[in-house]
Simulated assay, not measured.
Amino acid sequence: MPNIRKLDATASPLHHLGAEMRRYREAAGFTQDELGRHVYCTGSLIGQYETARKIPTRDLTARLDASLGADGALLRLLEMALRFQVPLQAQELADLEAEAAQAFLFEPTVVNGLLQTEGYAKEVLGVLRKDALDGRLAHRMDRQRILLRQEPPLLWVVLGEATLYQAVGGPTVMRTQLARLLDLRDHPSVHIQVLPFTAGAHAGFQGAFSIFRFNNGPDLAYSEDYEAGHLTANSQVVTARTVRYAHLQAAALSVQDSADLIARVMEERYEARPGCRAMA
């Protein structure tokens, strides 16, 4: 079924690109499926570009521009879209996570949502807002289904050591949450490192961020403020975040040493002895 989500073309350059792509397609008399056949992709993918749910590659945009007789207009709009941040809502973030082939996540003070237990997530989501909490909690837990897929995305996570000590919800919640992190050692696609206090000054002082990589699409950088999440495909920003993430990984403990630290904090601070590998 064609994607008929309405866009506000003034909301962002990406929305403008989607609206113009649809306008050119309709003026040319193509359905989404017909246009998809012309440029060697699916009609569904065309719909996602037109509704600003995905960012097209430059190569595909060039084929679309040529097929629709846009005389370079779509390519110019793409370049503009790549330079600006795009506001992202919760469901759009979940879609992004589900489509990514690789995700690199840095969280200095809180466990990332993809790794949270229900008890921990409920405390985090309910700090200031109790309205619709059950629904928001169910949505966050549903995001984690990507880790159960036959071919889950590669997930690399760097957590600040403060994450282990911030007693979200109390000892029971924290014991369960840290046990969850330890259980994920056996997941083939999840790798967790802890950035220790002893790292001193580090590349993540400006806050949490994520980098998403796709099999068919540009790399994207994502960050959040108190009101919303923001996404950009600006190559300079993505490259800078990639370098920053490499420095964080280099300063963090190894995966095994991180697991040992998590187990030690779990035992000493939250009074539980996990069933885990012996520590050195």
Rank of each mutant, 00 (worst) to 15 (best):
L147W: 14
D134N: 15
Y120D: 08
R129I: 14
G126L: 08
L137A: 01
E118A: 11
L147V: 09
A132S: 07
Q116A: 04
G119H: 03
E123V: 15
R140F: 08
L137P: 06
K122E: 00
D142V: 01
Y120G: 07
V124T: 11
L147S: 12
R140D: 06
R136N: 14
L137E: 00
A132V: 02
G119L: 13
V127T: 14
I146W: 11
V127Q: 05
G135F: 10
L148K: 14
A121V: 02
L148I: 02
Y120N: 10
A132D: 11
Q144K: 11
L147Q: 09
K130D: 04
G119R: 06
H139V: 07
R143W: 06
Q144V: 13
G135S: 08
L148N: 15
Y120T: 10
H139C: 03
V127F: 07
L128F: 15
D131V: 13
V127K: 10
L147I: 12
L147K: 10
L128G: 09
H139A: 15
L115W: 02
R136W: 07
D134F: 10
Q116R: 11
V124K: 08
V124G: 01
R129K: 15
M141Y: 00
G119W: 00
L115N: 04
L125R: 02
R136I: 02
Q144Y: 06
L133I: 13
G135P: 05
A121Q: 03
L148E: 13
L128W: 11
A121C: 06
E123S: 07
R140C: 12
R140Y: 13
L137D: 02
Q144W: 01
L137N: 03
L115Q: 06
K122F: 00
I146C: 08
A121F: 02
Q144C: 06
L147E: 03
G119C: 04
Q116W: 11
L133R: 09
D142W: 05
R145N: 09
Y120V: 12
E118T: 08
A121I: 10
L125T: 01
G126T: 08
R140A: 11
V127S: 09
A121T: 03
A121N: 05
G119A: 14
R129P: 00
T117G: 08
Q116L: 09
L133T: 07
K122A: 04
A138Q: 02
A138E: 01
V124R: 06
R129F: 14
T117E: 03
L128E: 11
A132N: 15
H139D: 12
L128P: 01
D134G: 15
Y120I: 09
K130V: 01
V124A: 06
R129T: 12
R129A: 11
D131L: 05
T117W: 00
H139W: 05
R143V: 12
V124E: 02
Q116P: 08
G135D: 13
L125C: 00
L128H: 14
G126C: 06
A121P: 05
R129M: 10
E118I: 01
H139I: 05
V124Q: 13
H139M: 12
R140M: 08
V124M: 13
Q144M: 07
A138T: 04
L125Y: 00
L128M: 14
R136F: 09
D142E: 15
G119P: 09
